[in-house]
Amino acid sequence: MNATRQRSLCSAFLVALLLLLISAGGVLARDMESCTRCHDETWESPVLNILQTPHAVMADERTPFAPNACEGCHGDGGEHMKAPADDEERTPPPVTFGEEHTSVAKQNETCLGCHDSGARMHWRGSMHNFEELACVSCHTVHVPRDPILDERKQTEVCTSCHARQKSEALRPSAHPVQDGAMSCSDCHNPHGTLNESLLRRSNVNETCYDCHAEKRGPVLWEHAPVTEECTTCHQPHGSIHQPMLKVRGPQLCQQCHLGTHSSAAFGGDSLDTPFMAGKNCLNCHVQVHGSNHPQGQRLTR
């Protein structure tokens, strides 16, 4: 190679580099442009929305986009950018999400590289982790707003697998999940907790007290199953019995209480007894969640 050619080559390289820097605002942006030359506004699976999201904020150096643009999550795209031979398919990027090219574990490790603290701290070993769910099984990244983070849309995502809860949420007595005023994640942490049923709080009752603080007490006359677990009587995802009871009264109460008047068989069509109509047992034992009245030992006051 003679000196003239070397100089020409260097000059051309510098010109190209200069043009890139001027036009794209820097080396980092150029990396994104090298992807969006193909994955542009006409691409069938729009990727450009990522620029509206927290994932693509260059000023936040924690984001993978800041130093590595698309490759921050998808890995080195060098092989992917090479034109395939006529009879071959293009090599996919090292990490593709929601597709078979990349194992679920590898997909998730990419996400967990940043999102492994806070509410996702206990992901490893969690129920959904063991079911080999990918983060993108629930999350959508290349959209302005991830649907699962929207209370009104989250239920749709969760109940695509949790069929029983989907049916229960439609029942006449249910929390306002279907109406978007509550979401599954108000009570559960799908990323894993060390608690029963992925509950956010340490047990069922602490979870319920978040909204129903009046039930916490402590009171003078406690009702043992109430104090121990609300779900002894209630079906929190929805029921056909008000208020979200597993079974109607008085039969619900009679599962634990027989003796004196509670031993009676409540059936037939003579429904004018105070043990049947209205609130049945709660016509009198109204303080079923516990009473603080000195004379409330029968939970009537």
Partner: peptide, 14 residues
């Protein structure tokens, strides 16, 4: 190389 630079300098896509 020059073509690459020019392409990047204008709003074009492949």
């Amino acid at each position: 190389m020059i073509a690459t630079g020019l392409c990047a300098g204008t709003a074009h896509a492949f």
